[in-house]
Amino acid sequence: MNRFIVAAALFIAALAVAHVGTNAPIFANATQEIFFTVGHGKDNADTSSVRIQIPAGVTAVRAANSDFGKPVIERGANGEVSAVTWTKPDADLLETDYGYYKLALRVRTPNAPFTTLNFLTTQTAKFTDGGTTQYKWFATTPAEIDLDAGIEEAPAVRLLPARRPGWNKYTVPAAITNLSQWFGDAAIVWKGTAAYSANAETMNQINMTSGVSALSMLSANDEIWVKY
């Protein structure tokens, strides 16, 4: 795929706590920007640093400056960028938690459409007396969430296949049970004579069309038509 840059920011909120969000859509096998939005600090303390771990398969990582100043990278055994940390000087800390921050990486994503990348993130907040507290945005499944230990849902990026306006034909590699997570911006998705749309009016039309049923999930190796 030719190099291109996607610069649409979308804050993703889940559960009762605003998470470290990411933008969408993000495409497989492409060079693009990924934004991480930090919607709040912790315990009324301003965010002082954010460390984002780079998942396997993500390459050509470059980090942008932010309100936290210059990024600092860590490298793995093979020289690949394994983590990026932004740290705010103490002199720039806000007296209470009212800040909103956006951190940017430009990366090349792996050629793995319909898979999810989890960017494990450590968010540190600092009190005015110098004490610190942390969120560990590490959980990749609901079972891993441990609120008492400060472990919450990791920022997740769903890799979409390349697309063109109009009809696109795909074979999904694994089952998809939540169609809205993957096809929320599609006009319609077809599997045989079953269809899905995140648009409620289109779903009404699907239900009113003779010979067509509502599509609720996909199985591995299903062939689908998607219109954008």
Partner: peptide, 23 residues
């Protein structure tokens, strides 16, 4: 196609541009 009233009409079925090439 029977029932294919103009989009937006109550009870309208899917318009043709939302039918896939294989339909």
């Amino acid at each position: 196609r029977p029932g294919n009233e103009p989009p937006g009409a109550p009870g309208a079925a899917l318009p043709c541009d939302l039918l896939p090439p294989s339909f």
